[in-house]
Design a protein around this nucleic acid. Structure first.
Lengths: 238, 238
DNA sequence: TAGATTGTTAATCGATTAACAATC
DNA sequence: TAGATTGTTAATCGATTAACAATC
């Protein structure tokens, strides 16, 4: 049988979100020359239950062997194929501040099949600046180059301040980008067919704070009676 | 009625994860001097359905007025109280590489009720280095200071390379930290009672890639017949 | 009162878990 | 064959949606 387009059985979102972890752990096992792994072992390493792991994997196909387990490199490849990371993806980062800079330098992308092909910023001070080791360096390019840079990228990362994010997003979408990873603390609005994933650093800390507070049983101001609420300012300002 | 401990009605995790967004949007409305908002308006601004928003808010109490809507500052305060961000939380960051540096400089934490009280690294080159504007500056401290720094922090952020993360995590837990935000691409193992949240940048991109691939209908290598699989190497290495 | 909007209920949907028959 | 482990089924759990009675 020759190459053909993969058939699109629908994979639950919850499963998709875990596949990259499975893949990474399998890659680690492969690097350690482990040949075979059982769902029980792999599940521990991935921090999920064996039942969930098997259920997830069964969505992709029947790639294990009863009584034996899964062949590490074979399973890793099947997951990579399903995720679409057998070929590299090109990524543009907009915003070359502290975060954008850190993301551009982050080695974890390249090793996972992503190539940073452009870094864009509006600030004259940083435009033209060269980042990274010579040979694999990246130049900060002006906003005007966005269209050209985007032409060769399928995925965009927004690492601008909050107030610029929606504008940047609109321009990216106008340039044809349909996959956006947003680090700005803003709810972006995009047309149908464009997917935005959001990483919100403060939100993560707030969720931790919520649980920490409950563990500590931190005494907290109780809901005041309605009449008293005018005196309660906002605790944390925008 | 004096201060008393908040009663711990259980709030669904999915709701907790959305409360910070509601809070941020409400803070924005408050800054714009908006007095009152309906679930329909707030829902659009937060990117959720009105039904979900009302359901979420009803978990906290009955803070709206039928026929009118929600009073912006009052609701913002109630959410802040529930999240536990009416008082600031102290955070230690371990790892002063590109990412740790960017996180330490990130203004979005301070404005959301978090104070970076320490930045730790093992590398002699960066220890002693001062970051940030004078007045609000932060010194990179050696690993040996971890215990002392942690004593005043309730939340820790791990921004080290993957191979150091589990060790750092163990030390943090030993020092009493029970809330950890992990940026290292590793599944951390922690004892009962310690909460780890993970932000995995490559995973986010891989999830986007998965959907992008399906939209593009990128031709992909089909699952080869079983006999052929030996020739299939891993596409992306560890 | 009439119109608007909340808070809640019941229905639906999707994700997780437990258990085991299939099978290596 | 006996032991191990997958793939799948059915049961449970939790989250979302739709609809509407309560009420401002």
């Amino acid at each position: 049988m020759a190459l053909r387009t993969v058939d699109s059985r629908d994979i639950p979102e919850a499963t998709v979100a875990r596949l990259p972890i499975y893949h990474r752990v399998l890659a680690g096992l492969a690097a350690d020359k482990v040949q075979t792994v059982s769902s029980a072992e792999l599940a521990v390493a991935c921090g999920v239950s064996p039942a969930m792991l098997r259920k997830d994997l069964s969505q992709l196909g029947s790639y294990g062997t009863r009584g034996v387990g899964y062949e590490v490199t074979f399973l890793a490849y099947q997951i990579a194929r399903e995720l679409g990371v057998t070929q590299p993806w090109d990524v543009v980062i907009v915003g070359a501040g502290n975060l954008g800079h850190a993301l551009a330098m982050y080695g974890g992308f390249a090793s996972r099949g992503f190539r940073i092909v452009g870094l864009i910023d509006a600030h004259p001070d940083v435009i033209g600046q060269h980042l990274g080791a010579p040979g694999q360096e990246l130049e900060v390019r002006p906003f005007a180059d966005l269209d050209a840079v985007v032409r060769s990228a399928q995925i965009a990362v927004i690492a601008t301040p909050a107030d610029a994010a929606q504008d940047v997003c609109d321009r990216l979408v106008a340039s044809g980008v349909r996959s956006i990873l947003n680090f700005a603390p803003v709810v972006l609005s995009v047309p149908e067919g464009v997917e935005v994933r959001k990483v919100d650093l403060a939100v993560e800390l707030q969720i931790l704070a919520f649980h920490e507070q409950r563990r500590e049983d931190r005494p907290t101001v109780q809901a005041a009676s309605d009449s008293a609420h005018e005196s309660l300012g906002e605790a944390i300002t925008a």
